[in-house]
Design a protein around this nucleic acid. Structure first.
Lengths: 204, 204
DNA sequence: TGTACATCAGTGAACGCGCGTTCACTGATGTAC
DNA sequence: TGTACATCAGTGAACGCGCGTTCACTGATGTAC
């Protein structure tokens, strides 16, 4: 009854989601046309709507997949702060900065996602929530509220820093942005327990 | 010899740059067409090329203007950490999160700027450099290298947090992102002197 | 003061192009006998 | 094993539309006399 192997179409769909992820991250969502997206997967124009109901449908699938992949990487890190620092070194490396297509989806697409339709933003919300929890598991210090705060802050700092480092044309400034982010990220991740719901605190 | 007042055309140009800034920030750069941009300033299609040589030329002018305005706000803050905290409260407020068109240009446009042509990115580089210096003046603690690191980190954290808070659809999560950013930003800005070029530091 | 005129900011129709989407079709596949 | 067939993933031309840009023009302006 079923022609072709049952995995055949599903494999093509997965290939489209993966190649579209790379294309979106390097050229932007608005900057990537259907013709280019299907060509990247070795198909032609009309094949698209056999797999996705619209471009937005593809975008939502891509966002979900990209964040799941990123969560899987964080989940696979060994426990302990040393491996968090190792991840920070990768995330804030010149290699990651220069690899738009293969890098962090939030850094590449976040403000565009913010302007997408609600289905895309819901996909992002689920993915970002999972990502924050994955980071929090590595920072856990017994105070869940403070741990979540730090996980959110670390995630935001990483995303913002990588975007700044990518946008500026001065290579020296770009390197300083990455280095500053690393110093601040390590401080944030390893800060001692106390002021959880930070009351003001004078310097010195 | 000169017809019209000499300020007339310049005033129209400034009006275009200002309305385009709002439009770009709410709809994105790719998402804003020339027809809409000129209509926002009360003009019609063809008037555009009397003021700008191309859309990219307008984008570069907008980026320069938007960052200059933001630097002027930071420069006008009274000295002292209390006024930095006041600015952080504004920046990370629900009101700012919900005011795309009137808010921070980096939070609204940064990843799109990263994909723009080199003239736009150079305009952004100049603006971001000025912004980092303006922030650093408020954080100065005698160590210029550490001060710049903190200014860069603070700027990146703010931009990233606002983007995350805007992208997610869950209002409660969005509020928690803003609150977490505030706590982490205050900690970053008011941290005591010591570990400037942070050597590793075990927790507790 | 009143009229003729040169300037030029702004008009609006038109251009070629690539967008997202539709649809009649093709042809490789695995099945039935 | 060999042939006829039903399936359906993928093809490729076409659609209406809005994009960035061009250009011949209009008409309000301030000037000259």
């Amino acid at each position: 009854m079923t022609r072709y192997s049952p995995e055949h179409k599903e494999a093509t769909r997965r290939r489209m989601i993966e190649t579209a992820g790379r294309r979106f991250k390097s050229d932007g969502i608005d900057g990537s046309g259907i013709a280019t997206l299907v060509a990247d997967a070795g198909l032609t124009n009309g094949a698209f709507y056999g797999h996705f109901s619209s471009k937005d449908d593809l975008v939502a699938s891509v966002v979900t997949q990209q964040l799941e992949d990123q969560v899987a990487v964080v989940d696979s890190l060994p426990a302990g702060l040393a491996s968090v620092e190792q991840y920070l070194r990768y995330y804030l490396s010149p290699a990651h900065r220069d690899d738009l297509a293969g890098g962090c989806p939030s850094a590449a697409l976040l403000d565009e996602i913010g302007r997408c339709d609600v289905a895309v933003r819901e996909a992002y919300t689920a993915g970002a929530t999972a990502m924050i929890q994955a980071i929090a598991r590595h920072l856990d210090n017994g105070d869940p509220e403070q741990t979540e705060q730090r996980a959110i802050g670390l995630f935001s700092l990483l995303v913002g820093s990588l975007q700044v480092a990518r946008a500026v044309t001065d290579p020296d400034l770009s390197d300083r942005v990455l280095a500053a982010a690393y110093t601040n990220a390590v401080a944030l991740a390893t800060a001692p327990h106390p002021p959880a719901h930070a009351n003001r605190q004078e310097p010195e």
